[in-house]
């Protein structure tokens, strides 16, 4: 497990383990490549270093889901029922639930990195 929150929790291994388990459960409900794309897309919205995504090489459903994920950081209240329905049509409800958690967690982790949570926590 990597990431700013897990790193910050180095002094509390039990809590760190619980956090890692939660993130792993959420991410393992989706295809690993898809999870990586979600995290890349959201990191790019935050102007953090992230590999560029070649949207043209993706299928339409994945492109739709990534466009939705890119709205999570700064436009989460503006997402419409129609946009959500498009992603649900691609993923199905159970995976949409996991996708919602993974995308929101990716956004929050970027923000934790931007305030240097590990540095503040002495990690």
């Amino acid at each position: 497990m990597s990431g700013p929150v897990h790193a910050a929790l180095a002094s509390d291994p039990v809590l760190a383990e619980h956090y890692a388990a939660f993130r792993k459960r959420a991410e393992s409900a989706l295809d690993a490549r898809f999870v990586a794309l979600i995290r890349q897309a959201i990191a790019a919205v935050h102007a953090m270093e992230a590999a560029a995504i070649d949207d043209a090489a993706l299928d339409e459903g994945t492109r739709t889901a990534l466009a939705y994920a890119r709205r999570i950081p700064f436009e989460h209240t503006a997402i419409t029922d129609a946009e959500a329905a498009q992603v649900i049509a691609h993923l199905g409800e159970p995976k949409f639930v996991a996708f919602s958690v993974v995308a929101a967690l990716a956004d929050a982790e970027c923000r934790a990195a931007l305030v240097d949570l590990p540095g503040l926590a002495g990690g």
Binding site: L9, S11, A108, L117
Partner: peptide
């Protein structure tokens, strides 16, 4: 240690 725990909390609240 408190900042680490609080950081976890805010991360979860937000997500």
């Amino acid at each position: 240690a408190q900042i680490a725990e609080l950081g976890l909390g805010v991360t979860l609240f937000l997500a």
